[in-house]
Write a protein that binds this DNA or RNA. Structure first.
Length: 426
RNA sequence: GCCCUGGUAGUUUAGCCCGGUUAGAAUGUGAGGCUGUCACCCUUGAGGCCCGGGUUCAAAUCCCGGCCAGGGCGCCA
């Protein structure tokens, strides 16, 4: 016989099955011992009659999170709240859990975030965290589904890089044999180069920033979803991102209802046109708060904006040139602003992108203007000089999106093994 | 890096303001009991004041420093 997964048992009434899983709950009454068994697919009640001493002698030794094997008959039950139960003919303990455990897997006694992270080996077994990461898996799957359907090529770019190229975010140094290298903070130039060959590319991977940020939204290692498309304008890219978001979120609500029910989080409505608000308009909305043109929009500022326009998905477009990275393409008729966008849900930035400079000479000019060394970009400049089409793209924070979808409070909750300024373990 | 708040059994939490109690509870864990439980229930045992210094006859409680955590800010292609 094969392992039966616990979600299958309603179809196996009166059949003998073999199940494997973890002891989730134990209730000990006068005549019966009730074990709630949990596996990756669901839960089932094991009903043990204490008069069956052979089985009871094994079962009375059970503790929370012990791993067991049960062979038994599935019975429909009016009394059992799950509707079905398993009457065992044999129980084996495969792996003992040493007590006390670091946290309560049933979630009846909650644990602090720090405890939850330290004991990820247990908190991932909790229904809520389990659901979050099943949603993450589905989210990535639907992104791939959407893009493969539209002729995109998935790429894998290097995470160990030679040059600390830009100002801005600090990079982690890595000893690379006899030279110094860095952990990539984005696939930017590599995905642009790839778009010059494949036209439409994407990558889902982790990147690194050595910033001592202590916020509920920043990590030193974060999962990014990057897209780059040749012959796309920034409005084309926003169209793509908007339809992708609608597809992915609707599909999640359709296919992963079980997980969202466990999390008890309200569905986010995406059934509207995602507004594209010009940076200029944002400034005029925020003028009463002393925000002026040229200011970056901090989280605090964006919270004020959310208060004005409400909590929804929207784009902020046409950012001042000096607020955007060196590769961002300016508007031809007004070089003070760029063909760029941020994509937000309320105050939280989820993605940013835009059109890129695709002419080598222009890029060199721009690098010099920003006090960056063109020599460090020689590969990229050659690529631009070798027939680089106009192109645009974006980078999206997967965990920030997951945070919103699962109504979580801290990004560390939705990352399996988060890395922040103070946490390198587990 | 700055500001605020906190740190009490494995976990979660009361007590702290107003110093003196066998430091209380829940859950988990050991023992026993209980008519099918479903946050089962009942009896009973074990288990705790972050670290260092100070004030005081006396510190979980007040003060200072450290470490750790959470939040706010800053930093942040």
């Amino acid at each position: 016989m094969k392992k039966t997964y616990l979600n299958e048992i309603p179809n196996l009434v009166d059949k003998e099955i073999e199940v494997y899983g973890w002891v989730h709950e134990i209730r000990d009454t006068a005549k019966f011992l009730f074990i709630i068994l949990r596996d990756s697919a669901g839960k089932a009640q094991i009903l043990i009659n204490k008069e069956k001493t052979e089985i009871y002698n094994v079962a009375k030794e059970l503790h929370h999170e012990d791993v067991i094997y049960v062979k038994g008959i599935v019975k429909k039950s009016e009394i059992a709240r799950l509707g079905y139960e398993i009457i065992p003919n044999e129980i084996k303990i495969l792996s003992k859990a040493k007590h006390p455990l670091a946290l309560d897997v049933t979630g009846k006694i909650n644990a602090e975030l720090n405890t939850i992270l330290d004991a990820r080996y247990l908190s991932l077994r909790r229904d809520d965290y389990n659901a979050i990461f099943k949603i993450q898996s589905a989210l990535v799957r639907y992104i791939r589904e959407f893009l493969y359907e539209r002729g995109f090529i998935e790429i894998f770019t290097p995470k160990i890089i030679k040059f600390a190229t830009e100002g801005g975010a600090e990079l982690f140094q890595v000893k690379y044999f006899d030279e110094i290298s860095y952990l990539a903070q984005s696939p930017q130039i590599y995905k642009e180069i790839c778009s010059g060959a494949f036209e439409k590319v994407f990558e889902i991977a982790s990147y690194y920033r050595a910033e001592k940020s202590r916020t509920p939204y920043h990590l030193t290692e974060f999962l990014s979803f990057d897209v780059e498309c040749a012959f796309y304008s920034y409005h084309d890219i926003m169209d793509l991102l908007e339809s992708l978001m609608k597809f992915v979120i609707n599909k999640l609500y359709e296919k992963n209802e079980k997980e969202f029910n466990i999390l008890k989080c309200e569905k986010i409505n995406v059934d509207y046109k995602f507004e594209r608000i010009k940076y200029d308009e944002v400034i005029s909305i925020l003028e009463p708060y002393g925000i002026k043109w040229g200011d970056d929009l901090t989280q605090h500022t964006l919270k004020l904006l959310e208060g004005k326009i409400g909590k929804k998905f929207f784009f902020i477009i046409d950012w001042p040139t000096e607020l955007k990275p060196f590769y961002t393409h300016e508007h031809e008729d007004n070089p003070k602003i760029t063909k760029s966008f941020d994509f937000n849900y309320g105050f939280l930035e989820i993605a940013s992108g835009g059109e890129r400079i695709y002419n080598g000479d222009k890029l060199v000019q721009k690098l010099k203007k920003m006090n960056l060394n063109p020599e460090n970009f020689s590969l990229f400049i050659k690529a631009l000089d070798s027939g680089m089409p106009p192109h645009a793209g974006f980078g999206l924070g997967i965990s920030r999106l997951l945070l919103i979808l699962t109504n979580s409070k801290n990004i560390k909750e939705v990352v399996l093994f988060p890395r922040d300024v103070d946490r390198l373990i587990p």
